[in-house]
Design a binder for these strands. Structure first.
Lengths: 218, 218
DNA sequence: GGGAAAAGCTAACGGCGTTAGATTTTCTAA
DNA sequence: TTAGAAAATCTAACGCCGTTAGCTTTTCCC
């Protein structure tokens, strides 16, 4: 490892670091190429040796945020019964939105972060895909019939997005959002598991079988 | 009416008009004081005779958008049975997000519109309040027990927010979002009306009584 | 040790929101 | 009708922004 590249790497990391801290402290609107450069003790053009433009900096941060969110959802669900998957994933999602407001704003495209919509969409695809996996695992476990699961997946995802938005409103708060999410997930899952089977079999009104775990990845 | 004030009023309206059109055509990021001024044939400082600053222009547009959204939800629900209120209000919300993407972005705070969060929050309060009224009317009608209706209201609102976000993603689309919203509302309403009354009374499994209308306003 | 390559800086461009100050237009009142 | 007040409007400028060009210095490699 040349000393040169070592410094490069450190500077690269520092740029992202400082940008993240500035966003946390003063909001994404206050994050500026010139200010980042000043903070790390360089002149502004140096940033362009590491990133093509400002959006590239934000994009990198968004990718990290997304990976972080995904990891949290994954680990929340790992080694837990598939039946609880949706609840746990939802809680992890909201917990991320609460504890990492800056990164979450990047992920959800809030508050003029300046990241292009297509980029956000692509990043969100991973989270959506994971949500799909969780719901499918739940369905396989809970003996839900041949419903349109894609509906359930997208709906869950949309609900999370909406509730996270609610959570960041002072008057509502994340505790309440978490409470609401729990009910929403119950309602949605109940709706889908109640649909395919007409209430003619009073044997299993509440399928609560313990069962296989959700795998982390494909 | 002095000719002076007449011109003032026209200019005021023109500023908002041009700003709205520019946003529709090129996105809110492209809306600029200087460009607005050029478009209406004035120099930039003239704008400041009508608005304190750029945010004030956006704020006015946001207020209008909010009033428009509210009016659409109201008229969607008017003269319809309260039982259908939540479904109709949800559809109207999504329809607004589809047909007026620019204004809706303002309302929902998307894509760096530059409007302060507190302002958006205050504006959204009206829509939330109306949502509450619709849900309460539904509850009064559908013999739902003494559930915590606030949960239902906020959840509905959050779901709409989330689904509208989904709708504006190309790969999903508003038709699908509408479809999802219908299911979500059914699921949530079903959840809340099924909760308080334990299934011991097989007389009314699906309370579908036609009944009083939702009033437009208090 | 010398020459290529990388890293860094200053200066500048065009654009932004916004303000100050001068100038023109319009209204009002004697 | 006309002088003076008030309103409208303009040009210039300030300090910021993202970004690029071009030059100087440092570093590495042969």
């Amino acid at each position: 490892m040349g000393k040169r590249e070592e410094v490069r790497r450190r500077t690269f990391a520092e740029i992202l670091d400082v940008a993240g801290r500035m966003a946390e402290a003063e909001g994404w609107q206050a994050v500026t190429i010139r200010r980042i450069a000043a903070e790390i003790g360089y002149s502004a053009p140096v940033i362009y040796q590491h990133f093509a433009n400002k959006e590239a900096v934000l994009r990198k941060l968004l990718e990290r945020a997304n990976a972080d969110l995904l990891a949290r959802m994954r680990s929340a669900v790992a080694d837990e019964p598939a039946a609880r998957g949706p609840h746990l994933a939802a809680a992890a999602y909201l917990e991320f939105a609460r504890s990492q407001p800056g990164p979450y704003q990047l992920v959800s495209g809030g508050a003029g972060t300046g990241v292009d919509a297509a980029t956000r969409r692509a990043a969100a695809a991973e989270v959506l895909a994971f949500t799909r996996r969780v719901v499918h695992a739940w369905a396989a476990d809970s003996a839900a019939g041949p419903v349109d699961l894609d509906d359930a997946c997208d709906l869950l995802w949309g609900t999370l997005h909406g509730l996270a938005g609610i959570g960041s409103i002072e008057d509502v708060g994340f505790d309440r959002a978490l409470h609401l999410a729990e009910q929403a997930v119950s309602a949605l899952l109940g709706y889908w598991s109640a649909r395919p089977a007409p209430p003619a079999d009073p044997d299993a009104p509440h399928p609560h079988t313990h069962s296989p775990h959700v795998r982390g990845e494909k």
